[in-house]
C-alpha cells in the first residue's frame, strides 16, 4: 500500500528554481498496478525517487504500509523493490553471485535467499545461465536477471521505472508477465512509463502527469469520461497540445 500526499520537489538549475513535482497525491492499493504516465520531464522519475526515499520531498510525505517514510527512510527501503530503465548488471559477477549480493544488501538470511533464488530462477527462466558471468548475457537475459533482482527480498511494494524501454516485443512481454505475477502476489505496483499501449494493458488505474502535476486520475473508463477521448494516446496528445496553444486547461481531476 502506497500513499503519497502532496509531494512537492523543486531543484535549483543554473540559479533558477524548477518545480519538478508540484503537490502530487495518489494511493496504490495492494494487488493494484498504478500507472504514472506522462511525457519526458513530467516528473515521473522524481516522484518515484521520493517514494523510494532517495530524494527528500520539500513538502508532503509518503506512507508505505501505513508508515511514513521520513520517520526512518532506511528501514522502509526493505519494503520496496525497484526496477528501472537504467538498471545494469555487474559484468564480472555470475548471475547467482549478483542475486545473492542483493540478498545480502537487503539483509535477507542466506537460507531464505537460496530458496528464493531457485524459485525466481524457475519463474523468470534464468536457470540455465545462473552461473554465467553477466557480461555474457543478452539484453533480454539481463532484463530477466534485473527483474529477479528486484524480488530477492520479496517486497510488498514494487516500483517500476520505465521497465520496457529498449526492449523488444519478447522482452516487453516478459515484463508484462512479471507485472501480472506481482499483482497476483498482492503487491502494490507503481509503474512509470510513457509507453501508453503497455499502460493500457497492465495498469488498473492511472495518473496522468504533466509539468509536475497530476492532470487526470482514475481507471481507464474514468479517464475516458473525463477527457472524452477513447485512447490514452489521444488524451496525451491533448495534454501536449496545451503547451503549443494556450488553451484553457480542462478542470483537473486530481
Amino acid at each position: 500500500m502506497i500513499v503519497a500526499k502532496g509531494l512537492r520537489k523543486q531543484f535549483m538549475v543554473r540559479g533558477q528554481t524548477l518545480v519538478a513535482v508540484d503537490r502530487i497525491s495518489f494511493t496504490v492499493g495492494n494487488g493494484e498496478v498504478y500507472g504514472l504516465l506522462g511525457p519526458n520531464g513530467a516528473g515521473k522519475t522524481t516522484t518515484l525517487r521520493m517514494v523510494m526515499g532517495l530524494l527528500d520531498p520539500d513538502e508532503g510525505h509518503v506512507e508505505i504500509g501505513g508508515v511514513r517514510t521520513d520517520i526512518d527512510p532506511i528501514a522502509i527501503r526493505s519494503q520496496l523493490g525497484l526496477i528501472s530503465t537504467n538498471d545494469g548488471v555487474y559484468p564480472w559477477l555470475t548471475v547467482r553471485e549478483m542475486l545473492m549480493y542483493f540478498a545480502d544488501l537487503y539483509a535477507v538470511e542466506v537460507p531464505v535467499a537460496l530458496v528464493r533464488l531457485e524459485e525466481l530462477a524457475e519463474l523468470l527462466n534464468i536457470k540455465n545461465f545462473l552461473d554465467q558471468r553477466c557480461s555474457t548475457l543478452s539484453t533480454g537475459q539481463k532484463q530477466r536477471v534485473t527483474l529477479a533482482r528486484g524480488l530477492m527480498h520479496d517486497p510488498p511494494v514494487m516500483l517500476l521505472d520505465e521497465p520496457t524501454r529498449g526492449l523488444d516485443v519478447v522482452g516487453s512481454q516478459t515484463v508484462f508477465e512479471f507485472i501480472e505475477l506481482l499483482k497476483k502476489r498482492g503487491k502494490s505496483v507503481l509503474l512509470s512509463t510513457h509507453r501508453l499501449d503497455e499502460a493500457e494493458r497492465v495498469c488498473d488505474r492511472f495518473g496522468l502527469l504533466h509539468h509536475g502535476t497530476v492532470r487526470y486520475e482514475g481507471t481507464l473508463d474514468d479517464l475516458r469520461s473525463l477527457t472524452g477521448k477513447y485512447h490514452l494516446v489521444d488524451m496525451f496528445i491533448d495534454l501536449i497540445r496545451e503547451d503549443r496553444q494556450p488553451v484553457p486547461s480542462p478542470t483537473a481531476g486530481a
Binding site: 532517495l54 528501472s84 538498471d87 545494469g88 537487503y106
Partner: peptide
C-alpha cells in the same frame, strides 16, 4: 556508469 548504483543505494544497506 554500469547503472547498478541506484539499485544498490535503494537498498537498506547503510
Amino acid at each position: 556508469e554500469r547503472g547498478t548504483m541506484e539499485a544498490m543505494i535503494a537498498t537498506p544497506a547503510p
